[in-house]
């Protein structure tokens, strides 16, 4: 019996006063409180953080130019194609 996948969160850290938050990676946590704690434990161990933002990865909308110099429709997408970002109806089974 497989545990459901633990949700994925993207982490943004403001490391010094005056700077903007910078994306530094992702982590798995069951809820926002645990995500913040995990972000502190993983990404600010060497005193790197004044302020931490955690965002569920699938809540982020992205617009990425796919090829430089080629025409593109500014399409809204997810930040990457993660298997948990797309809901599959239960009847379809494990995918």
């Amino acid at each position: 019996m497989a545990t459901p996948n633990t949700p994925l969160w993207e982490v943004f850290i403001r490391s010094r006063n005056g700077l903007a938050h910078k994306h530094c990676g992702s982590l798995h946590a069951s809820d926002a409180t645990m995500a913040l704690q995990a972000a502190r434990d993983i990404y600010t161990r060497r005193g790197e953080g004044l302020s931490i933002w955690v965002v569920p990865s699938n809540a982020i909308t992205a617009s990425d130019p796919s090829e430089k110099g080629m025409m593109f429709e500014p399409a809204e997408s997810k930040i990457y194609r993660h298997p948990t970002f797309y809901d599959v109806p239960d009847e379809v089974g494990h995918m």
Binding site: T6, H28, M34, Q37, A38, D41, I42, R45
Partner: peptide, 11 residues
């Protein structure tokens, strides 16, 4: 139980 927790306990 999870890598994130390995980090926390070590901290």
């Amino acid at each position: 139980p999870a890598l994130e927790e390995d980090m926390a306990l070590a901290n």
